[in-house]
Design a protein around this nucleic acid. Sequence first.
DNA 1: TATGAATGAGGATTCATTCAT
DNA 2: GATGAATGAATCCTCATTCAT
Lengths: 205, 205, 205, 205
Amino acid sequence: MQRALNEKAKDKRKSHVLKCAEQIIQEKGLENLSIASVAKKANLAVGTIYLYFPNKEDIIAHLAIKSRKVLLQEFQASTVHLEDSLEKIRGILLAYLDFCKKYTFYYELVSFYESGLGLEESKELLEASKKLTAFTANIIREGKEQGTIRREINEKEFAFLLWGTAVGIAQLIHVKPTLLSAELEKDNDHFYFSYINLIIKSLSY
Amino acid sequence: MQRALNEKAKDKRKSHVLKCAEQIIQEKGLENLSIASVAKKANLAVGTIYLYFPNKEDIIAHLAIKSRKVLLQEFQASTVHLEDSLEKIRGILLAYLDFCKKYTFYYELVSFYESGLGLEESKELLEASKKLTAFTANIIREGKEQGTIRREINEKEFAFLLWGTAVGIAQLIHVKPTLLSAELEKDNDHFYFSYINLIIKSLSY
Amino acid sequence: MQRALNEKAKDKRKSHVLKCAEQIIQEKGLENLSIASVAKKANLAVGTIYLYFPNKEDIIAHLAIKSRKVLLQEFQASTVHLEDSLEKIRGILLAYLDFCKKYTFYYELVSFYESGLGLEESKELLEASKKLTAFTANIIREGKEQGTIRREINEKEFAFLLWGTAVGIAQLIHVKPTLLSAELEKDNDHFYFSYINLIIKSLSY
Amino acid sequence: MQRALNEKAKDKRKSHVLKCAEQIIQEKGLENLSIASVAKKANLAVGTIYLYFPNKEDIIAHLAIKSRKVLLQEFQASTVHLEDSLEKIRGILLAYLDFCKKYTFYYELVSFYESGLGLEESKELLEASKKLTAFTANIIREGKEQGTIRREINEKEFAFLLWGTAVGIAQLIHVKPTLLSAELEKDNDHFYFSYINLIIKSLSY
DNA sequence: TATGAATGAGGATTCATTCAT
DNA sequence: GATGAATGAATCCTCATTCAT
């Protein structure tokens, strides 16, 4: 009991630290995330951060996990009221666009996936990612049953295709927004909508 | 008399340094690229590097430019013998796959696009990037004239869609190769082929 | 629990670092003052220095401020027991001579006045300097009231004249002491006394 | 004969290099004087500079010597048409003011006097300095003979007093020009004129 | 648990000087 | 004589991590 309570308190602190780290990244980018800056924002001492996280990498890993969990929730929220599977796909892609706008730093955490994380962390990150692709794969399976999505599509594979391409497009928008809107003579949301249509079209008969 | 190294010789040295920097990135990633490591690999003193490049950023910019130039050449080589536009699209996507295998670090240079580079370098990088998208856009225009690619497609926009999604897919393969092949129960080339088909399908009638 | 070093303790550390920096300058001159040398003399790590000072310039600024504060104290101490204004002028000039012997590096900090210091420091340095000239100007004003100093003298201006010439003479003594004593066939204190007489004479009726 | 010609040519080169070094200092200050910058301005290779000067310090020493020689010439030019000794003193102090305006970097070379120069250079620098003080001392001696300057003044000593105070005042003006004019509510030339009057007064009966 | 002072390796960049040609 | 490429020590500064309290 006592222990459980401690665990809870500990988790609260951990998520507080993570929230602060998130803010730092939002404000100054991943490469400017320093333990000192997190400690300052969290009103904690540097050493205290290390009571909750073994190292900086671990914080980033937790952030990556957390962001995937949040994203999953937004996927669910954005599809719960929809029937049509293609509309659900559109829903999660729009949710992802919103997510990227809100967490502009997110794309920086994607490439962090590989780093030498502790096994435990790595597993959790894996789980969170798998849930995301599983969620997508499930929509596709439903669509195939509904008859709105082509039967020959491999659900899991397409889920990864969707994940990979969406991240790529978001990154492109993030990294060269002005070039993009200048070249295409339309705003970047429109560009993203075109991407959604590309995906929808490739799913449809 | 130690004559002024003619431009050719100087360029050779520069290329040598760039090649070494490339190797470092391949081995240890962009964030572990240090001037000292480049110097060591190039068998040069630290100061010598600065004889050829004003700063580290400039080296990265040159690498980004170089990679785009090489990529353009490979795009050209992979399409020169083809007639059908859709086949040409397949050609460049396959060329990009080969390119990514050869330059596994490449995706790290993509996000470097924006950084505060010197104007000249920045311009050159922009040019190199534009040539890549222009090359793709041109194939699509041809395809529309040939009647093999849907007329309602915006060439330039699709070129960016292709670029963004291809980078995303390559990154996904690079960052979690084992997860991917385990989950999909096939090798990652097959996954990439599915991506190509997705693109081809979305271009076709 | 390692409590927050209270301000006093922190100030003690800062003073210690400053004292070490002073010694370095004494021994090797301002242009040979390096953070590494300070750290070594202070038995601290390089990074520790940066815990107390944001950068090297700030250390120099503090030294400049400190030296002016010390000088002001010595001005006060050397005049507190005197009545006659001209004697007070003689007093501060003698105090300055002692000061220069003790802090032989001082003249190097004079020309540092202008550098791009942080606003706060710069302001404090300005204040410290102004207090010095104000102190001198005040003595002159008193002397004019007493009738010992010529009424047509502009107090502030003369304070600056005194400051400028005293620094110049001290510098001359510092930079070519042997030449000076050899040429003049007397020791450099006598030379300085002549300087004092020059000033006194120009103040008197 | 051949040798003499070579010597002449060599001297020409040397003074060309010195002139370029002077310009660099004028433009960017003594601490930004680099051999590379001198070489560039002189249209010479770095190594060539070292054919004429054993090291950077030597260049600076030559500059110090040269500036004193130029100053001596200007002292002579500014007094040649004058009879009265006090006017001559005023003349050389005005000449010094002009000199400082023209060679704004000059004060930086003063404190370089002491550095570990080669004996030969050091001796030449000494000679040049001595000529300056001798010139001043001579004027004072004349004045004493004329009856315009107080007989009890030690000529040589006063020459050094003049040199030391003039440098100090010039330095003060150079280092905090805005502070000075703001505090005194007059321009810095006026401040310098007050300095001249101080000197004249202390020389007169 | 919590603190935050201390560490010190590591990174980018500069520049006087040398030396092979 | 002349060149200029090459050197590498030196400098400032950062920051993840540790540890005594």
